[in-house]
């Protein structure tokens, strides 16, 4: 069954800071939800494997580009941290 250290790992993987108190609540909630959805394990093992269906690529011609910069101003307006038209982030290396 799921443990507190699993919650911590999931929070880390999904980049979400979770308080100590909430870890316990999440543990309880996830236990009851996982217990319920585990019902699908009872479904017979003879069921067909996952089918991909009629997958097809949806492509478009590489033509008719929009005018350069026509969306830039509105999109850059939303960026919380920017400098000289660039999105500013912390050094990662």
């Amino acid at each position: 069954m799921i443990e507190k250290k699993d919650i911590e790992k999931l929070a880390r993987l999904s980049r979400i800071e979770v308080s100590e108190e909430e870890k316990n609540i999440l543990l309880k909630d996830m236990e009851s939800i996982l217990d319920y959805v585990s019902q699908i394990k009872e479904a017979s093992s003879g069921i067909p494997p996952k089918e991909a269906g009629e997958l097809r690529n949806v492509m478009r011609e590489d033509k008719n580009p929009h005018e350069k910069g026509m969306y830039t101003k509105e999109i850059m307006n939303e960026v919380p941290d920017k400098e000289n038209g660039y999105v500013k982030v912390k050094q990662i290396l």
């Binding site: 799921i2 999931l10 993987l13 999904s14 979770v18 909430e22 999440l26 996830m30 939800i33």
Partner: peptide, 13 residues
């Protein structure tokens, strides 16, 4: 939202 993201991360791990 936090709960569902963690749940989704769990079933995909």
């Amino acid at each position: 939202v936090r709960r569902r993201i963690l749940l989704g991360t769990y079933v995909l791990s």
